[in-house]
């Protein structure tokens, strides 16, 4: 399990990195925390001829309050996000999701940009960004563009980033007033990728009617799955047992996971329903508790 030979480049700035990827476009890979790419390279399942290491670009690691949203640099470590007051106070769902990512040593290396660009269907951040309608900022020598989460994730381990683009920043809308959120997942071991996980955020009006709902699932499709139909069934209601039960059923029906050695497709579907029910209940309780 030794990687095939590759060249190694170490840019110090974003423009340098952008130039390098343009030069080697097609057979170069960025390496961020390396928590997924390095094992893939050791198995020789990934064989980039050039590796561009982003770990020495200080400008890519930050968490900033930008009014309507918070901006997180692509090379920000998951551990830093976990410990960030800004994230916990303004995007609590992101904080919650981070706590579910692997184990401390992995969170200390892993980055938000790496997780999102890698787009593992079972990973926590892609589903969270999809639920929160976050924006990804991509740069290339051709310029900069902002991609909405719904357009960003594009199937198994695939995104709409072009071969010469680098993800530099994630822009996450702040949680509205009177909102509550929860990230709940189930995995065979603590810290594993989820068999099924749900990112949920709800916003209530003064009468505790759900006026906003954002729901996405991980681990149960080719990519993160936005549960639109479940949202439609819940929006405008108060969360009764019946509504919850309907949401559970709708979520079960909404996903089409594949089975593998860890869980059958049917079990993953069932778990999607259970996680949806639990995440919704917790999110609403948190929203009510805030009032």
């Amino acid at each position: 399990m030794k990687p095939a030979s590759f060249s190694y480049l170490l840019p110090k700035t974003v423009p340098e990195a952008v130039k390098m990827i343009a030069e080697h476009s097609g057979d170069a890979r960025f390496i961020a925390g390396g928590q997924s790419l390095v094992p893939m390279m050791n198995f020789r399942l990934a064989r980039p001829s050039v590796l561009i290491d982003l770990n020495r670009i200080p400008d890519l690691s930050y968490i900033k309050d930008r009014g309507d949203y918070i901006a997180v640099g692509a090379m920000t470590r998951e551990r830093m996000i976990e410990n960030s007051d800004i994230v916990r106070d303004m995007c609590p769902l992101v904080h919650d999701a981070t706590l579910n990512i692997a184990h401390l040593p992995i969170r200390s290396r892993g980055t938000i940009g790496g997780s999102i660009s890698n787009a593992d269907p079972a990973a926590e951040y892609p589903a969270t960004m999809l639920a929160l309608d976050a924006f990804m900022v991509a740069k290339s020598e051709r310029g900069e563009r902002e991609i909405g989460a719904a357009d960003f994730f594009d199937g198994v381990l695939s995104t709409s980033l072009e071969a010469d683009e680098i993800l530099t920043e994630v822009r996450i809308p702040k949680a509205p007033a009177n909102s509550g959120s929860a990230f709940i997942e189930i995995s065979r071991r603590q810290g594993d990728y989820a068999l099924a996980g749900i990112a949920a955020q709800v916003t209530l009006d003064d009468d505790e009617n759900i006026i906003g709902i954002q729901l996405a699932a991980c681990g149960v499709g080719p990519g993160p799955v936005r549960l639109n139909q479940v949202e439609d069934g819940v929006r405008g209601t108060t969360l009764t047992a019946e509504i919850l039960s309907n949401a559970k059923e709708a979520a079960t029906a909404a996903v089409d996971p594949e089975g593998d050695v860890h869980a059958t497709a049917a079990y993953r579907r069932k778990l999607t329903g259970v996680m949806t029910e639990r995440a919704l209940r917790k999110a609403v309780l948190r929203a009510v508790g805030k009032k």
Partner: peptide
């Protein structure tokens, strides 16, 4: 895929 129990399990 071969899941070893870890300390947290």
């Amino acid at each position: 895929d071969y899941l070893m129990p870890t300390a947290s399990d």
